[in-house]
Simulated assay, not measured.
Amino acid sequence: MANETTTKNDSTNVSFGKFKVGGYAYAAPVGTALPTDSESALDPAFQLIGYLSEAGITNTTDTDTAEVKDANGTTVMKVISSYAESYKFVLIEFLRKAAAQMRYGNDAVTGKDKSMVIKHQMPDDTPVSLVFEIVATGNVKDRAVIGSATRSEFGDRQMHSSDVLGYDLTVNANDMGDGVTSIEYIGIPKG
């Protein structure tokens, strides 16, 4: 007889994705030890990059397919020929040095929070590691880990009284090995 939980719908598996209170977006140099579960403490090299806008994170995948046709032109097979993944978000702690560095690169930003010099220049394509901490309904932790993220797109920045200042960017999730572009750890915290 089949396990009852696999043959019936379960409303406790439905969830909202809120972010962890106190800090949920972190960046570190590539090569920093990455977390391997949903709850272990992050390596101290991970810096908090601050609040994200209310739009949160958009994770996009891009795939291409190749078709194999027979002599009559009939498609006999379709295979995925390429896969790419990106993450889009807006950092709204405009005055946080780590947020500015995430947008412009470490070497383009000097100073400290609320007192910086930012050199607007060719975007830095040095990859970084990113971790996003999400809490699903029922206090279930959901941690997204991007071992190597490269800045790839930058949104417009408007400066006026009716919009929050922020850094709108998209990062490409690069191959972490074996074709893996990011890892998501979902689990209930211990204790």
Score class of each variant (00 low, 15 high):
Tyr185Val: 10
Ile134Met: 11
Phe19Val: 15
Phe19Lys: 08
Thr74Glu: 13
Leu42Pro: 14
Asn139Tyr: 12
Asn3Leu: 13
Gly147Glu: 12
Gly191Pro: 00
Val140Ser: 02
Ile80Leu: 13
Glu85Gln: 13
Ile49Leu: 04
Gly73Cys: 03
Gly23Ser: 09
Val135Thr: 11
Glu93Ile: 00
Ala136His: 13
Asp124Ser: 10
Met159Tyr: 13
Leu169Arg: 00
Tyr83Ala: 01
Ser82Phe: 02
His160Val: 00
Asn139Pro: 06
Tyr185Arg: 09
Val68Cys: 03
Gly177His: 09
Thr36Met: 00
Ser129Cys: 06
Gly50Trp: 01
Gly23Arg: 03
Ser15Lys: 03
His160Asn: 12
Ile80Asn: 15
Val79Phe: 01
Ala173Met: 06
Ala149Tyr: 01
Glu39Gly: 10
Lys97Val: 13
Ser148Phe: 01
Asp163Tyr: 07
Phe19Gln: 03
Phe89Val: 11
Glu39Leu: 04
Ser82Trp: 01
Asp107Tyr: 05
Lys88Cys: 02
Val21Ile: 11
Ser11Pro: 15
Asp43Cys: 11
Met122Asn: 05
Val135Gln: 02
Asp62Glu: 14
Tyr167Gln: 01
Asn3Val: 09
Leu91Pro: 09
Asp125Asn: 10
Lys114Cys: 08
Asp142Leu: 15
Glu153Val: 09
Ser38Ala: 15
His120Cys: 15
Lys8Thr: 07
Val140Leu: 06
